[in-house]
């Protein structure tokens, strides 16, 4: 095939059409991928103090949870979970790892039963110092949590510094440690 002779024919506009369509596609998915910034509920509660609450214990093994705990001069994690929530079970090993590094974690069990909480903690470990029972999701809504699991970094004065929505992945652990250090 000798193709050395370049044909004199000028390329029509049609050859640019695929590139144009492709650019339109890229623009569309780019918008789709980055526009829905509202997919993640950004917290309006960051920088605000924890609301005052006093929750009864969710399990016999640990005390309940009340606001004064968060003003003891050490940053803490507040983990909103439930025994019926699958991602909560998934993140348990990350919580255990955090607890092992000396982080104090308090839990709020949402709409749960004592026996279920006990079974859940027995199966997946118990990294919590205290666990409050929030049967009506009152505390959950008051701190701006939209689901389970969620984890809040609360500084030594009881101010919310960071909200993590969804389960804590292993890759999130260093970031949470950093947020805790910043909250010192």
């Amino acid at each position: 095939m000798s193709e050395a002779t370049a044909p004199s024919k000028r390329p029509g506009l049609a050859v640019w059409l695929p590139l144009g369509l492709f650019a339109a596609f890229l623009a569309l998915v780019f918008v789709g991928l980055y526009w829905p910034a509202d997919r993640e509920v950004s917290s309006a509660f960051i920088g605000k103090p924890l609301p005052v609450f006093d929750l009864p214990p969710a399990t016999d093994e640990r005390p309940g949870l009340a606001t004064p705990v968060f003003k003891q001069g050490k940053p803490r994690l507040l983990n909103v979970f439930a025994s019926w929530c699958v991602p909560c079970a998934v993140e348990s090993s990350q919580l255990a790892a955090l607890a092992k590094q000396g982080v104090e974690i308090d839990g709020v069990a949402i709409r749960d039963r004592k026996e279920d909480v006990a079974r859940f903690l027995g199966q997946y470990g118990n990294p919590f110092a205290r666990i409050g029972k929030d049967d009506l999701s009152q505390v959950q809504l008051a701190i701006g949590s939209s689901g389970v699991p969620e984890t809040f970094v609360v500084d030594s004065k009881g101010i919310i510094r960071y909200q993590h929505i969804g389960d804590i992945r292993p890759e999130d652990v260093p970031m949470i440690m950093r947020k805790l250090a910043e909250a010192q």
Partner: peptide, 17 residues
Amino acid sequence: MKNMSTAEAKAVIAETK
């Protein structure tokens, strides 16, 4: 559902999460 942006939506997400 991501735009429901009401207490209901929050509850939906809480339930289905």
